[in-house]
Design a protein around this nucleic acid. Structure first.
Lengths: 243, 243
DNA sequence: AAGCTATCGATCGTTCAACAATTCCACAAG
DNA sequence: CTTGTGGAATTGTTGAACGATCGATAGCTT
C-alpha cells in the first residue's frame, strides 16, 4: 500500500505574512477539474431559471454545446445530483429537479433546525464578524428600492449563508449551501417574486440587530417565526400559481 | 411467456397476495448501477476498518480486483467522496478520509443540532413507531453481554439512525446517514472499542423510555449530555491512542 | 373497440484504448 | 540546504464501441 500524504500541511509556525497574501489569490488558479467547471455552468443556468424543473438534460446535446466528453459530463451530472439540483433516473437520464410541497416542508424543517441552532449558540461574538451580514442586508435593501427582486433573493440567500457560517462549522455550511441551492428551484416556480422577498429584507435587519445586542434566544425565536412565515408564503405562492 | 392458466385474471384492486410476496424480494434484483455496487463494497470495507484512513485507493489496482472499468470505478469514487468517506485530490487520486479532532467536534455539533431538534419535535407519537428503537437497544444489550463491541457500535448507530427517522424528513435522514458514516471512521482509530460503547447501551434505553413517556424536552436534554460525553470520550480515546 | 404483445428507435450504462496533464521521486547543480 | 531537471507512475480527458433499458408505435388477439 502506498503511504498516504497529508491532505493539508501547515508550514512552520512563523510562516511569514506574505504567504497569507498569496494564499488569498490561490483560487485564481484553475485548480478544478473540467467536470467541476461544467457543473458550475449548469448550476448557474439552473439557479438562474434558464433550465426549468423537469427539463431533460440530454447527454448528447450537452456534449455538442459544452465540448466535453461524455464521461466528463457525467461526472458533472453526478456532482449536481448530489447537490440536489438534478435527479438521476436509471437508463432515463438526468432531469432538473422539481420540488413538490413535501420537499419544501422538508427543506424548511432542516433549515429551521440548523439555523436556529446556530443562532442560539452565538454568544459574545466579535462585532466585526457581523460585517458581511450588514453588507448583505444593505445589498438587499438597495436592490429592493430599485425593484430588482432577483438580486433581493440573492442577497437574502447570502445573508442566511453568512449567518450560518458564524458557527464556523464546515459541515453545517455545506448542508446549508445545499438547502439554499434547492430552495432556488422553488423560487422560480412562483409567479411574482416581489411579494415573496420584499417582506424579509426588513426582518433580516431586525434579526441582525438582535444578534448585535447578544440576544441569541430572542433572535432564535424571531428566526423561527420568520422561517415559518416564509414557508407558508412559498407554499401559498406555489399552490396559487398552479391553480 | 409466463403461462397464465389460472382462470382468475382479475387485474383489479385485489391484485392478489402473491404480488406482495414477490415485492418483498424485489430488492434482490439489481436495480442499481454497477458504480453503486462498487461503492457499496468499498463503503463496507472502509466502515469495517479494512481500509484504514489515509490509504490510497489506486485506480489500477482496484480495477484488477473488482473487474470494472476505470470510468465506473471513478463514479464510485465520486459517490463516496460526497459521502465524506473518501477525499479526492486532483491528479493525486482518492484516499480514505482521516478525521482530525476538529472534524469530530464539527461532526458532533451538527449531530447535536439535528438529533436534539428531532427529539424535541416528537409529540404524541405512535407507540409502534418506537418498535425499531427497542429492537436496536436490545441488539446492543445482547451484543454487549457477549462482548461483541463491533456489533454494539453498529446497534448504537442504528438506534440513532432510526431515532432521526421518526421525524420523517428525507433530507434529515440523508444528512444523518452521512454523519454516522463519517463517525465510523473515527471509531476505528480508538484502540479499545469496549470503553467507548459500553456506557451508551444503558443511556439509549433510558432515552427511549423518556420518549415513550412523551417527555420530549427531558429526552432532548438527556440526549445533549449524552452526545457531549460521547464526544469527550472519543476525543480522549484518540488523543490517548496517539500519545 | 379494448387490451395485450412484439418490435423499434432513442438514450443511457459500461467498457476499452489512447493520449495529455500532473505529481512524485531521485539526483545533480548551485 | 536549497533549487532545478529529468523520467516514471498516476490521474484527467477524450472518443468510440457495444449491450441494456425505456417509451412508444404498430399489430395481433379477444
Amino acid at each position: 500500500m502506498a503511504s498516504p500524504p497529508e491532505p493539508q500541511q501547515t508550514t512552520g509556525a512563523n510562516s511569514a505574512a506574505w504567504l497569507q497574501i498569496v494564499a488569498g489569490d490561490v483560487q485564481l488558479f484553475d485548480r478544478s477539474s473540467t467536470a467541476e467547471r461544467v457543473a458550475d455552468v449548469l448550476r448557474r443556468r439552473i439557479t438562474e431559471g434558464a433550465l426549468p424543473p423537469r427539463t431533460h438534460l440530454s447527454e448528447e446535446q450537452l456534449i455538442e454545446v459544452l465540448h466535453v466528453s461524455r464521461n466528463t459530463l457525467r461526472e458533472a451530472f453526478r456532482l449536481l445530483s448530489h447537490e440536489g439540483l438534478l435527479v438521476h433516473q436509471l437508463h432515463r437520464g438526468v432531469f432538473v429537479r422539481a420540488l413538490d410541497e413535501a420537499d419544501l416542508v422538508d427543506l424548511y424543517r432542516l433549515r429551521r433546525a440548523i439555523e436556529c441552532d446556530v443562532v442560539r449558540s452565538l454568544v459574545d461574538l466579535d462585532p466585526t464578524s457581523l460585517r458581511r451580514l450588514y453588507d448583505d442586508v444593505e445589498a438587499g435593501e438597495s436592490a429592493a428600492q430599485r425593484g430588482d427582486w432577483v438580486s433581493v433573493g440573492t442577497a437574502n440567500m447570502e445573508f442566511h449563508r453568512h449567518l450560518v457560517s458564524l458557527a464556523r462549522s464546515p459541515r453545517t455550511d455545506q448542508v446549508t449551501a445545499r438547502l439554499l441551492a434547492e430552495l432556488r428551484l422553488a423560487f422560480h416556480a412562483v409567479a411574482s417574486p416581489q411579494r415573496l422577498h420584499e417582506s424579509y429584507v426588513g426582518r433580516n435587519r431586525s434579526l441582525l440587530e438582535l444578534l448585535a445586542a447578544d440576544e441569541s434566544d430572542l433572535a432564535a425565536k424571531e428566526l423561527e417565526e420568520y422561517l415559518q412565515d416564509s414557508l407558508a408564503e412559498l407554499l401559498g405562492a406555489i399552490r396559487g400559481g398552479r391553480a
